[in-house]
Simulated assay, not measured.
Amino acid sequence: MSFLSATHMTGGYGGADILHDCSITVERGEIAVIVGPNGAGKSTAMKAVFGMLNLRKGTVTIDGDDITALSPQERVHKGMGFVPQTHNIFPTMSVEENLEMGAFTRTDAEIAETMEQVYELFPAVREKRHQNAGELSGGQRQQVAVGRALMTRPKLLMLDEPTAGVSPIVMGELFDRIIEVARSGISILMVEQNARQALEIADKGYVLVQGRNAYTDTGQALLDDPDVRRTFLGG
């Protein structure tokens, strides 16, 4: 069984289903990317994995444990970390206070060690640690948001559009850091509008269309697929 296995997910926010028999799996230390056109259900699939969407059908397991009935808070205790696209920092709190909030549920004495790891991963976060997070640039705020999620010591880190609204240079830097996180053994599940760049770093890619799996393959295989290139990557 895969480390994360979300299979046959079917459901939505009201009466109509947005996801239709959608399945997502991620192995340990793997980067899995969900791409597709606007309205394809990408973020909805991510929220379903995190327990923010009631499923009519489907099962979600992590590390062999069935967590389908668990709340998002309970899934954090099971090893999930989630970074939403917006409203993902506390803007009136300092950077360091934001990171401390990420460790709020922890009971161990190694919080300072994890914070140092975040600072090593994101030197700009260390430099700005005493500033209010709301004063930072868009890219720096995203680093703080990812850092706060890492403070929970997740086994699976989920990122919803982490490069939205940042420059190409900052996007490349964020992707480099995401690769470093995966190399440490943490699994990554990421939704991205910048499909081509995301698939370049992906071990596995999912192309969703209208809430269904349209294509599933390695990132490179999807980049090389002429149908995927023509339809979703601009040729």
Rank of each mutant, 00 (worst) to 15 (best):
Q131I: 07
N98S: 14
R229V: 15
T61L: 10
V207H: 01
G139T: 05
Q143I: 00
R177L: 09
F175S: 11
M52A: 11
A103Q: 05
M171R: 15
A198H: 02
A214T: 05
E192I: 04
I89W: 01
P37C: 05
S94E: 06
Q143K: 14
D66E: 15
V166C: 09
N38R: 08
S23L: 11
V166P: 05
R153W: 06
T114K: 07
M190K: 09
S2K: 14
R75F: 05
F175D: 09
K204Y: 02
R28E: 11
I24A: 08
L19S: 13
S2V: 06
L53Q: 12
L150Q: 01
L53G: 13
H130F: 15
C22L: 15
V146M: 14
E161N: 12
I62G: 04
M93N: 07
L70K: 08
K47P: 04
V83H: 12
E27N: 12
K128P: 11
V228F: 10
G29N: 03
A109P: 13
G211N: 13
K155W: 02
T25P: 12
F232N: 10
Y206G: 02
N132K: 11
L121A: 04
G147W: 13
Q220W: 03
F232G: 08
A48D: 01
N98G: 13
H87I: 11
P91G: 06
I188N: 04
A40C: 09
T25S: 12
N98H: 15
Y215D: 02
R75C: 06
E135W: 00
E97I: 04
T10P: 01
I89E: 05
R148P: 13
T114F: 04
Q131W: 06
V33T: 12
Y215N: 01
G14N: 15
M1L: 08
R183W: 00
L223K: 05
I179M: 08
Y206C: 04
G172K: 10
E180Q: 15
I178A: 14
I178P: 14
T25K: 12
Y119F: 04
G14R: 09
A221F: 00
P226M: 06
I111W: 00
E27K: 13
G165V: 08
L150G: 02
G219P: 06
D203K: 11
N98W: 15
I111H: 01
F232H: 15
D65W: 04
Y215T: 01
Y206P: 03
L208K: 06
V144H: 13
P91I: 08
F3P: 04
G29I: 04
A195D: 09
F104H: 15
V181F: 03
A40M: 09
P37D: 10
R230L: 08
